[in-house]
């Protein structure tokens, strides 16, 4: 049923171990996308509906770019698709775009897939006249990516590594602290990445009373407000992250609840992995006996 020419996978690259860039043909999404929005993908007709942030898009070429971290079954299904294959479904853009305004100095923090996810925000915030500082983190220097891309759209780009192999030793929060304490006023913080990082930065900026926004990533199903799987508590009020979010006032988030809800299917996620069953055989039954089956 997809658009006549389908959602073709145009490009696939492993940027750093476990982080994959996928460029997909999706003209209707590229034409309407705004910074901070996401899409929901299904690699095949039997796949799960999984959300991914729009890391970039090109309305003229009609394509979108995603950064996909290899975690479990759904992300593996996606990155196992060969270039030229068609994804079964891509729906979007979904979620409220980030409200881009001129605030002054805006500091963006990105970890994991969030390194890609903050790029459109940095670009738009800078265009709106802000001084934009992008901060990215990884466990070690060899896991950093898109540094140049971010530099090109930010006034400054800072780096943090957990092992200290480049930039500040630590994570986004350590750099935020340095910026705030030693380098003058910050008017807004935005963080996107793993829940742990977002939570740490939230605790930090709470005491400084600086407006902080986080891109929440609860489990989603439809992404249109129909199921309520994505509900989060913001200032003790239930919100649906897919239509009210993904961005929320970090200082109102019930992080314990989000953590719990995100791990609701931990057992099933392991079961879904192709230990006994061969993932490629599940997805490409017709090609089960060709080649090594690694999909690349």
């Amino acid at each position: 049923d997809a658009l006549a020419d389908g959602f073709e996978l145009l490009e696939k690259r492993e940027l750093v171990p476990n982080m994959h860039l996928l460029r997909i043909r999706a003209p209707q999404i590229a034409a309407h996308a705004k910074p901070g929005q996401f899409v929901i993908l299904m690699a095949g007709e039997t796949s799960e509906r999984t959300p991914f942030t729009l890391a970039d898009w090109n309305a003229d070429q009609g394509d979108i770019t995603l950064i996909i971290e290899e975690v479990g079954r759904s992300s593996r299904e996606l990155i196992s698709l060969p270039v030229g294959a068609r994804l079964a479904h891509v729906s979007g853009p979904l979620g409220q775009p980030f409200d881009i305004q001129k605030k002054g100095t805006v500091v963006l923090g990105g970890g994991c897939y969030g390194i890609g996810g903050i790029l459109p925000l940095a670009r738009a915030l800078k265009q709106a006249g802000n001084r934009v500082i992008s901060v990215i983190e990884a466990s070690s220097s060899y896991l950093l990516f898109w540094e140049e891309e971010l530099r090109a759209v930010s006034d400054e780009t800072r780096i943090a590594t957990k092992d200290g192999s480049r930039g500040t030793r630590g994570g986004v929060q350590e750099v935020f602290e340095q910026l705030y304490r030693h380098e003058g006023p910050v008017d807004m913080f935005i963080a996107m990445g793993c829940t742990f990082m977002m939570r740490m930065t939230t605790e930090l900026t709470r005491s400084w009373k600086v407006p902080t926004f986080v891109a929440l990533n609860p489990i989603m199903v439809d992404g249109t407000g129909m199921c309520g799987a994505c509900r989060v508590s913001i200032h003790e009020e239930t919100k649906f992250a897919c239509i009210d979010g993904p961005f929320f006032d970090a200082h109102g988030v019930d992080w314990d609840e989000l953590d719990c809800r995100r791990s609701a299917y931990a057992r099933e996620e392991v079961e879904a992995l192709p230990q006994a069953a061969d993932l490629n055989a599940l997805m490409f039954p017709e090609a089960a006996h060709q080649g090594c089956g690694c999909g690349r």
């Binding site: 199903v221 129909m226 199921c227 719990c260 079961e271 599940l282």
Partner: peptide, 27 residues
């Protein structure tokens, strides 16, 4: 965890065919 809207519950089972897990990937 364990509280669902009927929509989520039924969508997972009907639309996403979670009763046929793990052939269908939805938990």
């Amino acid at each position: 965890i364990g509280v669902f809207s009927a929509n989520e519950f039924l969508t997972r089972i009907n639309l996403m065919k979670a009763y046929d897990f793990p052939r269908y990937a939805t938990a």
